[in-house]
Amino acid sequence: MTGPDAPAALRATGLGFRYRRRGGWALRDCEFTVPVGRIAALVGRNGAGKSTLLHLAGGLLRAGSGELGVLGLAPGTAEARARVALLTQDKPLYPRFTVADTLLMGEKLNSSWDRTAAERIVHEGGIPLHARVGELSPGRRTRVALALALGKRPELLLLDEPLADLDPVARGEIMAELMAEAAERGTSIVLSSHVLPELEETCDWVLVLRDGHAELSEDAETLRESHAVLTGPADRADDLAAQHTVVQGRTAGRQLTALVRRRGPLRGDWHVARPRLEDILIGYLRTEEEPGRRDARERTEAAA
């Protein structure tokens, strides 16, 4: 089911949002779909609109224009709130509560609450239930916040940079916890992150935001297969741009290295390497620095 009426974890149509005080558009004319059952990476540079999008999806903000659907529901409605969990960057927990109090709060606030699951997540982190949340390390605080979010048994879990401030061991543990949740219950996950190498083997969908626009929303494997890192003579740059979409290119002397999205068979004497997901994401994120390239790309696409 991939038609326009198939259920989607997230679907934006003409989505726009502006913070009144700042005046600029944080999101504008966003069009994308993230299918259900995916572990999606939300990627973009600072200020690209990632947190805004997650706040909209979690119902903490209201769209200024267009629409955003979560599991086919309007964000913030009672049904959406029951089926969607959002973990924001600031991880809003009461620092004076003990871990046990925090979990009890989760139980009281949610009609369907899986106490076993929530306690297991806390327990696996070796966190004592009587500890005060404010006295926990950042990694343990994230784990408690995650227990609170997963205890709800959400169908869609939204995470705003869950791995920031965590040491490598804690990052691995939290990621493993998320993957196990997805394996067991088929939970859809959308997580924003700057830690691109950690997305490589975890995410199977990629949503790239650039300046408030959705630049890419695609299956991760499809992206790896459709892109290539080419090395060849610099004087063939124009030929290359005419045949394929050059996402990013760099010339050093007579040699050109380019990340391209293939629009057909590769002709010419290019050394071809399969890019990692990280290479592709960096390529799309970096193009922001080069004004004019975007127009050139769009022209190429129109001509293709």
Binding site: M179, A182, E201, T202
Partner: peptide, 13 residues
């Protein structure tokens, strides 16, 4: 199981 593998390796199920 897939769950056991991903819980140990943190890769996509």
């Amino acid at each position: 199981t897939a769950k056991e593998v991903v819980a140990a390796t943190a890769i996509n199920p």
